[in-house]
Design a protein around this nucleic acid. Structure first.
Lengths: 190, 190
DNA sequence: CTTAATTGCAACAGCTCTGACTCAGTTAAC
DNA sequence: GTTAACTGAGTCAGAGCTGTTGCAATTAAG
């Protein structure tokens, strides 16, 4: 890293990242020009801050993954009963992932900082699931890696939900509920 | 449609479609040149058979959706108990979707023939799920649209599975099992 | 065998994007 | 208030992709 950016430059960077998310989510092949325009910035400025298109996208991914990890940390999943933790984490993740769906929906580059963030995230997730299994919340025979991927997929699906009632907590409940019990007839039902 | 193609021309079309799936799955921005090369054909031939890049992609999607519908029809889901039908359909769909993951993983154009295929497919799926619900396999309170999307998502996840044992039937069982019961402790368990 | 379709090759025009550079004007920082 | 960073605008060269055309050679179809 070079020295710290001046305040206005930092504002530009943030604006560009947010604009990139917005524009690229609508069209993954959008040009730097379109991104610059959406950011309210000249195209040259984008190139000044990000060496290349790829660099911009990687920075975008890294920023988003950092926020995602932060959102999970905020839920303090390690000091809470698994079921509660699952709900909280899910709600937080839904919030972040809704805002950065493009950045978080891309396969990340091998060596980048984003990849490390994903690894950390995956580890935390599996740890939480492991605790859930240990406390009898999950089937003792469950394959945690599979459960984790199903969990991710459910979150992704929940984001595409288009109900009139976009209550994040309700969505989180739906996700966790589906993850735990599926769509089959519930134990308590006649 | 114009008149029927000559035999060699038809072979070309098929080769191009298969090559397009292969190449575009690896890189959605691959050029027509790369597709032509993979198909063992000159670039001009590709343009002769498909007016534009977009036309090629739409044709690809339509072809894949047609195959997918065929695969479902082969499972005769309407004349079989829902649970069996679910397994069979899942296994068939996994087979097709594995071979055409790019073509089937794209948002389809509004008016195209692929869109109609998707609608038909969705309708069949909901019908099958409805029968499953009626026979007590699903929670009576289940939102079939949500279940359908979860089902799609699970199939997509199962395709990314990288176990040493890629037995399609086992994968289908995993999908259906997860859809019905989730990852939580099973009713029969202590 | 005769005909018409099909193909490969080569070349061309047109377009869009990228990334770099300069320079004058603006703005934060100290 | 002085300085250094930052920005917008304009320009430029280079590259890649698309879609088209003409022509000669090959190949399926009747």
């Amino acid at each position: 890293m070079g020295r710290a950016l001046r305040a206005d430059a930092e504002r530009s960077v943030r604006a560009i990242l947010e604009a990139a998310e917005l524009v690229l989510a609508a069209d993954p092949n959008a040009s730097m020009e379109q991104i610059a325009e959406a950011a309210g910035v000249a195209r040259t400025t984008v190139h000044r801050r990000f060496a290349s298109r790829q660099a911009l996208i990687e920075a975008l991914a890294e920023s988003a993954v950092r926020q995602l990890n932060q959102a999970i940390e905020d839920a303090r999943p390690d000091t809470t009963p698994p079921l509660i933790a699952l709900h909280r984490v899910t709600a937080n993740v839904l919030r972040i992932k809704g805002a950065w769906s493009y950045a978080l929906g891309r396969p990340t580059e091998e060596g980048g900082g984003a990849a490390a963030g994903w690894d950390q995230l995956g580890a935390r997730c599996v740890e939480l699931l492991g605790r859930a299994k240990a406390e009898g919340l999950l089937d003792p025979a469950a394959d945690l890696e599979w459960v984790r991927r199903v969990y991710y997929a459910l979150i992704g699906e929940a984001l595409h939900d288009e109900r009139p009632d976009p209550d994040p907590d309700a969505l989180a409940t739906l996700v966790v509920d589906t993850l735990l019990y599926g769509a089959g007839r519930r134990p308590g039902t006649v």
